[in-house]
């Protein structure tokens, strides 16, 4: 088998998904519409077939998503037959729970945390399935498969449970909840290879397309109404694709002609640019991600 390693990773992820469904009362899968959550959806489908996926999906919508992603999301949910819960950062802003950032680098990424924690409380979710991978960022390299959070969504690395032999302990006290990461051991390359192998569809922004862009600090950002454009910004047009599809205001585009999964895979391997480089937000400080995680976002 050529993709023997993917088969092993898939076995592992299915095992984790089933443990989540068995050990918790009310799981939810956090679905962003990005490639990692699309792979997660596929794995969930495989794990529970011929039964239905036994939990809902939830999207924390920043309101600044690529419209292509939202369209794709709704189509996929219909195909899978799962319930999708959407909670909006805009609502948290309207309720004065969070303040919209201002200025050139304003982004809603950090604001998601509050909306997420509120939704967890609203629905009494005891576990959230996330598509984080350990290869993405240094601080994530440490994350457990089951990561326990306190009442306030806080993560304390000293309190994380050891997971020898992948024995997963999901016992929690009232008010605590868990973030579970079934694709911890997958790399970006594994994700793309799997998408190719399984013939999965992706939102069109992952592939080369013509687009109006803003050139800022040497990076290309999608032009949109959400971006605070300043004098030094240059508006250009180009053939680009995105490697992650987060908030439109802080996801950098790559000049590319790769319009199929195969071509993207080859291009990624050839360029070997770490994927995180495409999220401008994380460059704010070396520890940005870790700070955010301590606050409950993942």
């Amino acid at each position: 088998m050529e993709n023997r390693h993917l088969y092993e990773l898939e076995n592992e992820s299915i095992y984790i998904l089933r443990e989540v469904a068995a050990q918790f009362k009310k799981p939810v899968l956090l679905f962003s519409g990005g490639k990692d959550s699309i792979v997660m959806a596929r794995l969930a489908q495989k794990a529970f077939y011929p039964s239905k996926i036994p939990f809902s999906f939830m999207h924390i919508d920043t309101g600044h998503n690529f419209p292509e992603t939202i369209e794709f999301r709704d189509k996929l949910m219909k195909e899978l037959g799962v319930d999708l819960i959407v909670r909006y950062v805009q609502d948290s802003i309207n309720e004065n729970k969070v303040q919209e950032e201002t200025g050139k680098y304003a982004s809603r990424n950090a604001l998601q945390t509050v909306t997420l924690l509120d939704a967890i409380e609203e629905f009494s979710f005891d576990v959230c399935l996330g598509g984080a991978r350990r290869d993405e960022e240094k601080s994530r390299a440490k994350e457990r498969i089951f990561s326990v959070r306190d009442d306030f969504g806080q993560w304390d690395y000293k309190k994380q449970r050891p997971e020898p032999f992948q024995e997963l302990n999901g016992k929690i006290q009232f008010g605590e909840n868990v973030r579970a990461f079934p694709i911890s051991n997958w790399t970006e390359e594994d994700i793309w290879t799997y998408i190719l192998q399984e013939g999965l569809e992706l939102p069109s922004v992952y592939f080369a397309h013509k687009r109006k862009l803003v050139k800022r600090d040497g990076a290309l950002i999608a032009h949109s109404d959400y971006l605070n454009i300043v004098d030094t910004d240059e508006i250009v047009e180009g053939l680009v694709r995105f490697r992650t599809v987060g908030d439109m205001t802080c996801t950098a585009a790559f000049l590319s002609e790769a319009d199929t999964v195969k071509k993207v895979l080859h291009e990624n391997m050839a360029s070997k640019h770490s994927e995180r480089g495409a999220r401008i937000d994380d460059k704010r400080s070396e520890s940005a991600l870790e700070d955010r995680k301590k606050g409950g976002y993942f």
Binding site: D135, K142, S184, N185
Partner: peptide
């Protein structure tokens, strides 16, 4: 101070 996972191929 903890277990770190490193991936390469």
């Amino acid at each position: 101070i903890d277990v770190a996972h490193i991936y390469f191929s």
